[in-house]
Design a protein around this nucleic acid. Structure first.
Lengths: 342, 342
DNA sequence: AAACACAATGCAATCGATTGCATTAAGAGT
DNA sequence: ACTCTTAATGCAATCGATTGCATTGTGTTT
């Protein structure tokens, strides 16, 4: 069992010695590069047997140093606890698994300094590709990373245009417009409130824009007292609904820009004795699992995080394979899921 | 901007050249190992300036090859989409972030071959530590990994005893006993059903044992028709409740071994016109966010995945720092969260 | 029989950093 | 004046695999 010296595991040289060939040969046999250099079938067998006998595994680290490829990608997301993000992550991991890639994951919590730290980490630890959901990072930051490391990059973002960055985005603005317009034309609502988040969040801005556009398209005027901002949380959704119900004039429908707040709003409406959807209709956004558990089940706009993750990884692996390939921009649609709350 | 040759980024040798010192000196200054070897303050400054000017970042890969340390840990869990696991994961990532470690994550979906593949991956890609939630892997498998790679290991598991493996476990069996006993003694239930999962799952076995023990302790006899198994899903919980309500004699309370199934059961009960908790009380397990959104809010047993993740990382990093340290076994309790469904 | 092609393999440099063991110079002790 | 520390730095080997460029041997072509 003991190898040459005190090492606890076999290295390539040990295999070479046992198989009585040179290290080069072992490498060629085991790394598959032998496809381009001929090794006799007999030698191959001997090498494989020796490797097997010694329980040899190549050291990926050493290999990467030499080949400049790591078989590893990094993923930067806001928060793995959030269903939207972990579903994306899961899709990426599955794609990577298939390609025999390992996946590094970092959470940023939307914090700028964490995003920067991620970039720095990638500066030192070579990876073949990076998937990011940037919040504060600009195209310039990412470009610097690419210039220095040559890494392949795919991002989930709305406004990044760069020849070497593939981008995937979800059309949540358009989906919001469609949903609100549907409330107006199909469900005959005229008084529609909007529970959003601070407009400094791009996502907040986009969805609010979508809402405004639907109203305008249908000739309705937005009212200030029907635009309330929360902070993504259940409690803030509940508070927003309370405010709405206490307003001089109550809306008949409310579009909420994420499901958690929508559920908070729904429960408040129910607890205050309103019937949903008869007295007030509610639409959420994200289609998290809990929306189906509610009674009434929550109508919501589904994003397709799994598709997003798949698209991101597909783009990334294509770019890893061919760094020169022209950039792709992929739009993933959203879909209104009509359930009982409207 | 152009470095020595076609390389796109500076390497240690470039810095050495610019600062007019040897590579050794640069390394000592930048890697902090200079603590043990004296470098004059003036030289230090020169090196730092040169590094700064060139935008130099050390190549972690090369460093790892030499030092045998990677500043990277790997996490093997069942499924990042599951709140229990991703909360654990998040705690681990936060701990790693603080220690400046990167985190590799792999999902196994409880599949044996995926677990094995993970182990193989760690055989080739050196990491300093591994955190696992093994389902099929045995202590022997893990021991082999340790023997070969010397990696530090911490696991979330109930029956692994090994001098070089730290283990953390949640006492869900005891918690189940406590919860069921509470239903009997405090809530005066005599007819308590159990919706579980296949007993070949260890988790299913443990919680069922806990349930049985509570009944026995209180002198109650378990009844076959009140033990129904599902497959963790909402639908299977709903089906189980339907079966229970169609049984010749209805139970007055039901303990469900995860929240998703409990929610399915709850909704069925409500839809069939029963009042919860008056006609039937329901207790879930896990304390997922949705339990608080339900009406009635679901009573459930909380596990503390964040604490589990923290304990796992703490044990792991201690072992990385001192591989010889005696093993730790840490029990994380569970807690019954009484809400409206009981 | 000379020249050549090609299959099969080995040699040695290389990837980029770290570190044990010198080496040099300057000051301290006797 | 001579030996001894000690501070400051450099040399060169090393981590473990990959790969461009030989080299050797065997069969083919002319």
């Amino acid at each position: 069992m003991a190898k040459k010296n005190g090492r606890q595991h076999a290295i390539l040289a040990d295999v070479a010695r046992l198989a009585d060939v040179s290290p080069s040969t072992v490498s060629r046999v085991l790394s598959g590069s032998a496809v381009r250099a001929p090794i006799s079938e007999e030698t191959r067998a001997r090498v494989r047997a020796a490797a097997e006998q010694l329980g040899y595994y190549p050291n990926v680290n050493a290999r990467s140093l030499r080949t400049q490829r790591t078989n590893m990608i990094a993923v930067m997301i806001a928060d793995i606890s959030n269903p939207f993000y972990h579903t994306i992550t899961r899709a990426i991991q599955d794609a990577a698994f298939e390609q025999n890639f390992d996946v590094l994951i970092a959470n940023t919590d939307h914090i700028h300094s964490y995003e920067q730290r991620f970039v720095e980490a990638i500066m030192r630890r070579p990876v073949d590709g990076v998937i990011m959901v940037p919040y504060n990072l600009t195209a310039a930051d990412i470009e610097k990373l690419i210039d220095r490391t040559g890494v392949a990059v795919a991002v989930l973002a709305h406004r990044i245009e760069h020849p070497r960055i593939d981008v995937v985005y979800a059309d949540d603005e358009g989906a919001t417009t469609d949903a609100v317009r549907w409330l107006i034309t199909e469900k005959k609502h005229q008084k529609i409130a909007f529970i959003g988040v601070n407009l400094s969040f791009k996502v907040g801005q986009r969805r609010y824009n979508g809402y405004r556009r639907a109203l305008e398209d249908c000739g309705l005027r937005p009212r200030d007292e029907w635009f309330i901002t929360g902070n993504f949380s259940y409690e803030s959704g509940a508070a927003a609904m309370n405010a709405l119900l206490d307003a001089p004039e109550r809306p008949t429908a409310v579009f909420v820009c994420n499901d958690i707040m929508a559920i908070g709003a729904l429960n408040v409406a129910l607890e205050r004795g309103l019937r949903v959807p008869e007295d007030i209709a509610i639409v959420g956004f994200d289609n998290i699992p809990a929306t189906q558990y509610m009674r009434p089940e929550l109508t919501t706009v589904a994003q397709f995080p799994h598709e997003i993750g798949t698209a991101l990884s597909k783009a990334l692996f294509e770019r890893i394979a061919d760094p020169q390939r022209p950039r792709q921009t992929i739009k993933i649609g959203c879909e209104l899921i009509v359930r009982q709350s409207t």
